[in-house]
Write a protein that binds this DNA or RNA. Structure first.
Ligand code: ZN
Ligand code: ZN
Ligand code: ZN
Ligand code: ZN
Lengths: 162, 162
DNA sequence: TGGCCGAGTGTTACAGTGTATCATCACCAA
DNA sequence: TTGGTGATGATACACTGTAACACTCGGCCA
C-alpha cells in the first residue's frame, strides 16, 4: 500500500475500480453497499475534480428519479466514515479515495488552483514532525486536515513548455 | 517573533493589545482601520473560542445599530488579508491572531474538541518536511491549511487530575 | 466653490452548504 | 404475524457566503 509517491489518478476510468474496492470492503466489514451509495461513489469517482453534494444530487437525478441533497449527504457520511471518499474542507467538496489508508495518517491533499484537480499523497515524515510539534505543545490529536493549494505538476509543465 | 513554542492567549484581555497592533500595522501600510474593522477585531479578540461571522454581527448589533453579516464579512476579508485574524476552515469561524507572522509559514491550528479553544503554533520542521514532500510530488504550493483537532493541554490536565 | 471619484458601508436579495424531523419501505428475527 | 433495525424519501429549516445597488464621506482638481 501507499506505493504511490507523487500523484495518482482519481477516478477518470477508475470508477469501476473504486466500486469494486468498495464492494469488497463492505463485504468484509458486513456493511450495506446500497444502490444510492454506489451511485454517489460512482459519480465522484468519475471525476478528477471534486464535487459538491448538490452537484452529485443533480448528477444522479433523472426524469423519474429525484435524488435529494440530504440523501447524498447521508451516503457521503457513510463513504467518508469508511474511508472511501475524502471531504475537502477548503472547498466543501468530495473526492473518491483510491487507496486503502485505513488510518489516514500523513494524508496531504494537493489542490491545483489552475485545473482544479485534487491529488492526494501521504508523508510519514510530515506526520512524524507534526506529532513531535503537537507533543511539545501538550496537545493530543484525534484528527487533522492538511490541504495545500497551488499548481500541479501537469499545469506547471504546460505553462513552461509554451 | 515566534517566541511562543506551545500555546498563547488569544485575546481574553489581549483585545486592547490586538487593537493596538492592528492600528500600528495599518498606519505603517497606510490602510484604513475603520470603526467597523476595529469593532469586528475587538469582538473576535475578546474570545478564546472562534466566532462565526453571524455571531460577530449579532454581538456588534445593538438597539440603534444593526450590523449586517455582509459588513462583517467585508471587515473579515480585510483583517484576514492583512494577517490580523485567521479563518478556521474546518469550523467556518474566525480567531484573532496574536503574532506577527507576515508569511504564515508553518502555521498550525490546534482545535480542542472539548473546550472549543483554538490555539496556534508554528513549526518550521513541519513546514520544511512538507516543502520536501511537495517538491517530490512536483507541486508548487501557494497556500496551505493545517488544522488539528484533539484535546488541549488544559483539558488533558483537568481530566487526569480528577 | 462645486463637481468628480474612490473607498467604505448599509441594505436587500439570493446562492450555496448542511441538518432536523418525520414518514415510509425493506429486511430479518422472534 | 409482529416488531425492530437500517436505509431512503420528503419537507422544512438553519447556517454560511456573495452579488448588486445605493449612499456617505473623504480627498482632489477644474
Ligand atoms: Zn485517500
Ligand atoms: Zn493543475
Ligand atoms: Zn496567527
Ligand atoms: Zn480544551
Amino acid at each position: 500500500m501507499h506505493d504511490h509517491a507523487a500523484t495518482h489518478d482519481h477516478g477518470c476510468g477508475g470508477a469501476e475500480e473504486a466500486i469494486a474496492r468498495a464492494e469488497r470492503l463492505c463485504r468484509e466489514r458486513d456493511l450495506q453497499f446500497t444502490r444510492l451509495r454506489r451511485d454517489v461513489l460512482a459519480a465522484i469517482a468519475g471525476q478528477t475534480r471534486p464535487m459538491g453534494a448538490y452537484d452529485i444530487a443533480e448528477a444522479l437525478s433523472e426524469p423519474g428519479r429525484r435524488v435529494a441533497a440530504v440523501s447524498v449527504y447521508r451516503a457521503l457520511d457513510f463513504l467518508t466514515e469508511h474511508g472511501l471518499v475524502h471531504r475537502i474542507a477548503s472547498r466543501n467538496a468530495f473526492i473518491s479515495c483510491g487507496h486503502s489508508h485505513t488510518d489516514g495518517a500523513g494524508l496531504v491533499f494537493l489542490i491545483c488552483r489552475n485545473c482544479g484537480t485534487i491529488d492526494e499523497t501521504t508523508s510519514p515524515e510530515v506526520e512524524d514532525q507534526l506529532g513531535r510539534t503537537l507533543a511539545k505543545a501538550g496537545f493530543k490529536p484525534t484528527s487533522r486536515i492538511l490541504e495545500v493549494e497551488g499548481e500541479c505538476g501537469a499545469c506547471l509543465g504546460r505553462s513552461t513548455e509554451d
